[in-house]
Design a protein around this nucleic acid. Sequence first.
DNA 1: CCGGACGATGCGAACGTTTGCCAGATCGTC
DNA 2: GACGATCTGGCAAACGTTCGCATCGTCCGG
Lengths: 337, 337
Amino acid sequence: MVTVHDVARAAGVSISTVSRALTDPQRVAVATRDRVTSAARELGYRPNRAASVLRAGRSGALGLVVPDLANPYFAAIAKGAQAQARERGVGLFVVDSDEDPELETEAVSGLAPQTDGIILCSPRAVERTVEALEGRPVVLVNHHVDGLPSVVADHEAGMLRTLEHLRALGHAKVAYVGGPARSWSDSRRRAGLRAAAARLGDVELVELGPHRPQVAGGHAAADLVVATRATAVVTFNDLVAAGLVERLRVRGLDVPGDLSVVGCDDAYVAELLAPPLTTLRTDLRDSGRVAVDRLVLRPGKDDGALQGDVTLPVELVVRGSTAPPRAAAPRPAPDAP
Amino acid sequence: MVTVHDVARAAGVSISTVSRALTDPQRVAVATRDRVTSAARELGYRPNRAASVLRAGRSGALGLVVPDLANPYFAAIAKGAQAQARERGVGLFVVDSDEDPELETEAVSGLAPQTDGIILCSPRAVERTVEALEGRPVVLVNHHVDGLPSVVADHEAGMLRTLEHLRALGHAKVAYVGGPARSWSDSRRRAGLRAAAARLGDVELVELGPHRPQVAGGHAAADLVVATRATAVVTFNDLVAAGLVERLRVRGLDVPGDLSVVGCDDAYVAELLAPPLTTLRTDLRDSGRVAVDRLVLRPGKDDGALQGDVTLPVELVVRGSTAPPRAAAPRPAPDAP
DNA sequence: CCGGACGATGCGAACGTTTGCCAGATCGTC
DNA sequence: GACGATCTGGCAAACGTTCGCATCGTCCGG
């Protein structure tokens, strides 16, 4: 293994100069720097991360905690974060908390000592988890706590756009199938829907849930939605929408004929469904990217534009799962087979 | 920060004893060990990973390299590996190589020095990547290289079962839509199909591809498949199948009426499609789990059952996308709208 | 021509852990 | 009662890096 000593000897300088030339180039003379860097390159020197962490206290790695890696939503965020971390030359520990608040907190306290900062995606137990950070820098994705930097999607605007769309189609009663109880996005979406309904005046809103943010959650919700006699439904995410559509098909109901369905997130499943799903899109990879940048870029030194909260736009992608309601009143649902 | 020194003082022993009591419990007397562990617990001692890596050379972390985190296939493996790593008390670096052989090799050479072992999922450039390991232990998932431990699915058996299924339905001409050129699974599946076709004798096989292992690959392949006049098609994975089905729908063709479709992997999209996809299932989380165990468990010391290659079973899940071919000869395909 | 200031580099001490080596204790046995 | 075997635990040296401080030279203004 080649160390600073080897490089120092090859370049004819002391190890301190090598260290400085490589970590803080402007602190050594240009000629020396060049000698050092070329010697390092020639010998194939690669700094020992452990030693550098031990001494300097920085690890050059970030942590990312997500509730479920198998959920395309979080997979996309992880992918974006991953790519940006590579770009910035830092490592990225990804931990899956399995939607378990307990595990989430545990993960963070394990991660905190060996990372320079942590990205917390849709945390399920923010208060306790933030405690576990022990003061380590953090960025919340899809969640907000006063005083902590966050990257969020503009759920309110998305919900307003959704309701406008459904109202324009002629829907007067819209159901919402909510996600996990502790989900911040869920609460924002509910708030957004309520505000939008109040603003539009002539759309009635029925709220359901909480439901699991997976396909199974959609299965469970479908019959409840039908029973409300709503002519359109907005779901917590695309997976729930998929499960819901599936169950409706089993019951012999048509989408969008009997029920218009709007998903959230525009996971790639959305366009695979039959009919393709109308959904709200956020650039998730971008969320991951931005989150990493906010931990890597030193405020003041680098781009100051990343200060404060970042709100990413939400776009309504209209596909085949929304249409005008059938006749004036929705057809009563037939019994399940 | 509480260090070994603090624990040593509290327990009334030297720091060496503390270290030994915690890392190699059987080397200290029971009474001492208890004193040390309870002191450690009381003080909330947490060993400094960097220091221990620096001195001992082991990092307590593994690396996982996947071509695409957003692909549910790899997401599932990552989730399994993740869970097992947590179980075993080791960290896990997840890196997404973006299907790029270059990035893959680069990722491994970045990962190698700071991990105790690396899991390589469906590598796209095995030879160069293995070189970059610099002798670090490795487990290949979904790939095989002589002399290296691997975890693979029994693609051959799966393909035989698939062809038997299609033949039993009455299909005489079956197309295969292949995946990436450098994919080992792809080559195994092709080999498996050929062997199965030869064995069955009366099924004609048409091989297509390479195609991208995503939805877009299926789009691209659909028209080619139709042109072959095959009555059934097997695709590299479920995403490709999804894209293919989508394109067929656009062209006005019916699945399974005009064409039976079999996917691979049983990603959760499979059951969301209309019709739900007949597909080959492997327990992907298990692959991840097993891979981690093979790096964590010391051979000889722990379970020796994990020596050598591990082949996971493949199960054919029959759903709605396969049916008997229409009439004797398939209906000629109508032109695209 | 001198003093002060500043820029570049070297010296050496940490960072917290693991581990080889050795000393002391304990016990059994002759 | 002494000797050897066995076991336990302490000392101190690493691991490779970073960084405070010191040193040395140079340059400029007075």
